[in-house]
Design a protein around this nucleic acid. Structure first.
Lengths: 225, 225
DNA sequence: CGGTTGGCAATACGACTGCAATGCGAAGGC
DNA sequence: GCCTTCGCATTGCAGTCGTATTGCCAACCG
């Protein structure tokens, strides 16, 4: 073989550029040439490593999931062995929340992919049934062991992420809501951060903030179409 | 003036077609010609009623929110005067959840718009700060009156919607999780549907189901891009 | 009846898309 | 020292995009 290049490294480099484009301008702006320009390579090279655009999208999709998984594992690993369940869950969930600008960018990409795959189920067939396992794990950490409560906690995390991305919740409000939920599930903790002080619903989104309304109806129905 | 046509009715007809296209093929597939074809009109007519595509998108966006609002009001109106807070909240939230195939289509559109506006904040500037008001209202219905708990309940609803759309949760599981949460907030009810019986995490999504993984990381981070 | 005006269709245009095909330089195998 | 093979860039093509422009038809005013 002639040249020696790490095939997978190149693909990751391209996928990084894709995520950068998607985070800034949305998935609609993701095109071969656009991604190539963002990666600082030629459009032909992108085509060389991904024979089709769908292939590129699928790779980027799995890259997103891999990175988040790594993020959770890093956060949990910093916790030491056998942490108390409440702290473990809080750490894992906080690691999955888009709390700072860097993780918000990733969250936007993930959100875009969420809508993307909602219409193209085949694009994510390779991904594992992580959600079900996660619910199961959460339930095992709960005092009640209730799967319903575990599913609710996971959904709460998801919703917090959506609202954080939409700008309706600030990071602190989201964490307060999370802690309040953990209070409900584990029982209140004296030294916790679960106090009610200082919470105020944010108003006045006129200053270029993200939309509120469609978040409120993110999952609403419109009848037929 | 010559002809007599209801300007707004035409716009709604076109917006309906747009939502149909978006629900089936995603927002990326929404183009003037596509929408025109779905509406059974000429492309020129669409252009006549919406001078620009962004104008059309904004109109459809507000139409989505209007419809969901109407849905909630209809559900609440069927409840009679002064319903108990728990029942009121459950009814409102259930009305916003994509529980059947018809509302799922609307939910897909709303999800697409959510990702869309995450990148174009200006497209939704006209929408009101509904979320903050909603949190406030929920808090007023809660025994604790805790805004944190209210924000958490709203986030849980949002997450349930996302997972319902993704196919990770079935309608019954979502409602069970919702009721379990209401149990936590209001205290358990003897006659409630909050039993743990029959809950089983769904596995084996191989059969064309929607993705699980990127839902699990819907709000994760990927570092920088 | 002529003219004006709104409703709507058709077309043209430039920019962009994904993708296939082609070309060329460089690095090893023989 | 060829010669294959890989890495990568370039170009071309058919199609779609959003938008501006043009033109026809029907309806109402005078």
């Amino acid at each position: 073989m002639p040249k020696k290049v790490d095939h997978d490294e190149r693909r990751r480099l391209i996928a990084d550029a894709l995520m950068r484009v998607a985070a800034e301008q949305g998935l609609e702006a993701v095109s071969l040439r656009h991604v190539a320009a963002a990666a600082g390579v030629s459009a032909g090279m992108v085509q060389h490593y991904f024979r089709t655009k769908d292939e590129m999208m699928s790779f980027a999709l799995s890259a997103v999931s891999e990175r988040s998984e790594a993020r959770v594992q890093a956060a949990v690993g910093a916790l030491g062995a056998d942490p108390p369940p409440r702290q473990l869950l809080r750490t894992m969930i906080a690691a999955l929340l888009p709390l700072d600008e860097a993780t918000r960018a990733d969250g936007r990409v993930a959100l875009a992919f969420l809508a993307y795959t909602a219409v193209r189920p085949a694009a994510s067939a390779e991904l594992h049934p992580t959600t079900a396992e996660f619910v199961h794990f959460i339930a095992s950490q709960l005092p009640s062991g209730e799967p319903h409560q575990a599913a609710g906690l996971l959904a709460l995390m998801e919703g917090l992420g959506v609202y954080l991305l939409g700008g309706q919740y600030e990071a602190e409000q989201a964490l307060d809501a999370l802690d309040a939920q953990l209070d409900l599930l584990f029982g209140p903790v004296p030294g916790g951060r679960a106090g009610t002080s200082g919470w105020e619903v944010r108003t006045g989104f006129a200053s270029g903030g993200a939309p509120l309304v469609e978040v409120g109806e993110e999952s609403e129905g419109v009848e037929r179409a």
